[in-house]
Structure formats: C-alpha cells, structure tokens
Amino acid sequence: MLEIKCPYCGNRSQNEFSYGGDATVKRPSLGKEVSDKEWDDFVYFRKNPRGKHSEFWHHVAGCRQWFKVSRNTATHEIFKTSKINEEI
C-alpha cells in the first residue's frame, strides 16, 4: 500500500486515490495540423518505463483534485508530488 502526499490534504493512504495515467503525455496543440501517427501516439502509446515516472493521480475520496506524482514504478518510492499546474 502506498502513502501518497496529496498537495492539498497531506499524506493519505492509496485507498483514497485513483491512478490517472502518464503525466508526460502532451496533447497536440489546438489548431495545429496533426498527422495520424502523432494522434495515434497521443491517444494510444505509452512508454511504461521501469523506474522514475511522472503520473497523474486523483484524490477521489478526499479533495477530488488531480495532481502529479513522481514515482519509481519498480520500487514504488514516491519522490515528489505537485499540483496539476506545477512542473514536477
């Protein structure tokens, strides 16, 4: 079980959170001409690294805010958490 530090509520158990996917994926900018491959990469393809990874998490049972977590996918060590509009 992970203990995750919500940027708003502090340390809470993983039970209160929901995983929200890869935080490194960026949506192609609006109005930009996008190739099928670029769109395919954005929608479907993820790196799934072994090691340090930036993720979105949602504090479903608490403040209901989305935020970012930098986590080691192999050891589950959490290095840092940040608000959604902050760099991690």
């Binding site: 158990s13 209160e16 049972a61 608490g62 403040c63």
Partner: peptide, 23 residues
C-alpha cells in the same frame, strides 16, 4: 478508515473512505 488518527485532532475534518464508502 485509512486516515492517520494519531494526527487527527478536535476540529479537524477529512474526506476519506470507510470500507470503500466515501465519507
């Protein structure tokens, strides 16, 4: 409830779960 009650004092509140129910 997975909340750390050792740090939970009077006039504190928290959104959390109790056996999977949001409370």
């Amino acid at each position: 409830c997975p909340l750390n009650f050792h740090e939970f004092e009077k006039d504190n509140s928290a959104g959390t779960v109790f056996h999977g129910i949001n409370i």
